[in-house]
């Protein structure tokens, strides 16, 4: 999806003419004769030419950058579609402790999170079933959690189940969750496979994915799917470049129009 958006961005820029880049061919630097100084400015770049007022090209007033287009593109990048599995609040559908796991009696329900403590081990101890969710267009699994003191479990596991109980499992290192601060980690789904019903998610569970032998101490705030992770540095760079291009184009156009008007008035 991100690749598609980047393609759209490039196509939009090329089609609108907002910013056009030219490739300047590389040439060998000139060899200077003895005593010759290298010119500090290009020799023919500032030569003024007299033209008649009729020759002044008609230009439209410099338009402000198309912020609506930019906003649309940035909005699609920064506000991806999402599908919540659980917000870990006390509402129905946020899941519950799974029976016969080490989490029974070890989970504290907070206002908008759950804290796993006590003698909870690293098995999948929280989850929900009986759902009907279409995650076929989703590309990332997003988990928001924080590590708490005493955690020894090395990984967090999410098990997703379709209606026929075929499963997909994703794991992420607990070290990616900061101590005491909720951190959102995005796990790429790497595409749904033919043998899984991503359009009919029936259940899920979260935990250490183990058979339960070390302490699991985390606080979960949110888990769900999304169509895009937070923009990567390359995406930010593209957006920055786009903004710079728009600003430069707008500025040059404005300066060009002022110069044209000055030349025209000088000729008069």
């Amino acid at each position: 999806m991100r690749r598609v958006l980047q393609f759209l961005l490039a196509a939009t820029l090329a089609g609108s003419g907002v910013c056009s880049a030219q490739i300047i061919p590389w040439s060998e630097p000139p060899v200077l004769a003895d005593g010759e100084k290298f010119p500090t400015r290009p020799r023919a770049s500032r030569r003024a030419e007299k033209i008649s007022p009729e020759e002044i090209p008609l230009r439209a007033p410099p338009a402000a950058p198309d912020v609506s287009l930019l906003g649309l593109i940035m909005g699609s990048l920064l506000s991806p579609a999402s599908l919540t599995l659980s917000s870990f609040d006390s509402s129905a559908g946020s899941g519950s402790v799974r029976a016969n796991t080490s989490w029974v009696g070890q989970v504290t329900q907070n206002a908008s999170s759950i804290t796993v403590a006590g003698i909870a081990g690293d098995d999948n101890g929280w989850g929900a079933t009986g759902l009907s969710l279409d995650a076929s267009s989703m590309t990332f699994l997003a988990i928001t959690a924080q590590r708490d003191a005493g955690n020894l479990a090395p990984s967090v596991f999410i098990q997703i189940e379709d209606r026929t109980l075929r499963t997909k499992v994703y794991s992420v290192s607990t070290s990616l969750f900061a101590f005491g601060t909720p951190t959102t980690v995005h796990v790429p789904l790497a595409g749904w496979t033919i043998d899984f019903g991503a359009s009919d998610i029936f259940g899920w569970s979260i935990g250490g994915g183990n058979v339960g032998d070390v302490a699991f101490r985390l606080t979960f705030s949110d888990v769900g799917f999304t169509t895009s992770a937070i923009p990567e540095p390359s995406t930010y760079a593209a957006l920055l470049g786009l903004s710079a291009c728009l600003a430069v184009a707008w500025r040059r156009r404005a300066l060009g129009l002022v110069a044209d008007r000055r030349r025209a008035s000088a000729r008069r």
Binding site: R98, A99, N100, D123, N124, G127, T129, G130, F157, I158, Q159, E161, R163, T164, L165, T167, K168, V169, S171, G203, S205, G207, G209
Partner: peptide
Amino acid sequence: WGGAAWLNFYYNTVWARWARDTDTITDPSR
């Protein structure tokens, strides 16, 4: 083993079919 958690099944003699331990009567047969 589902990959990270157990899927538990039993034969429900009332429904006369295999079921998951968390299933209700409206869930599909296993």
